[in-house]
């Protein structure tokens, strides 16, 4: 079972995506999707990232809703900055020390940070211990670091089963 389905979550995701792509739900497409869902992870298993198991699914859902809400808020904020006075912007680079070691969770964190609060992730230190962010309008660097850590990093550490070092 483990050999045939290295990542059951990915297989399920592929089936759902196939059904969405064909926009139909009949037995034929379901079987074809199932075939793809088994075949693609098997063919790609050499270079797939190891996804850590989700420990708290309920928490994941609430985190997704939080991120969606923050995306909307951040967009209104960025829109105001874009339309406002140019010389009042306070752009800055901030380095955030991160505790997440798992590559997949780190990718999720940096994507979330790019989409949400006026920051874009711009780089990672070679030892993966600090994330470089560019902020469009920075008020206080320590505040931002604290917000990133409590609002986004802590829930991700809690959701995914990976030990903080």
């Amino acid at each position: 079972m483990k050999r045939l389905l290295p990542q059951p979550g990915l297989s399920l995701l592929l089936i759902v995506m196939w059904l969405l792509l064909t926009n139909s739900l009949n037995l034929g497409q379901l079987l074809l999707g199932g075939l793809l869902g088994v075949a693609i992870p098997l063919l790609c298993r050499r270079f797939l990232l190891e996804v850590p198991p989700v420990r708290k699914p309920a928490k994941l859902v609430s985190f997704a809703l939080l991120v969606l809400y923050d995306i909307v808020i951040a967009n209104v904020h960025v829109a105001r900055l874009v339309l406002g006075r140019r010389d009042r912007l306070r752009p800055a680079f901030v380095e955030v020390p991160i505790e997440i070691r798992d590559e997949f969770v780190l990718a999720v964190l940096s994507s979330v940070l790019s989409l949400t609060p006026g920051t874009v992730s711009a780089g990672l230190s070679p030892d993966h211990s600090r994330l470089l962010l560019h902020v469009l309008d920075l008020e206080d660097a320590d505040d931002l670091v604290a917000q990133v850590k409590t609002r986004y990093e802590a829930p991700l550490l809690e959701i995914f089963e990976c030990s903080p070092t």
Binding site: I71, A74, N75, V78, A79, L81, V82, L83, R86, L89, P91, S114, L115, G118, V120, A122, H134, L136
Partner: peptide, 24 residues
């Protein structure tokens, strides 16, 4: 707004914000 940000903000990194957030 994303396109306006891309056009009028002063440097590359500030310009990056408009398209990644607003346009998406």
């Amino acid at each position: 707004i994303g396109a306006i940000g891309l056009y009028r903000l002063p440097d590359f990194f500030t310009r990056l914000h408009g398209p990644t957030k607003a346009t998406t």
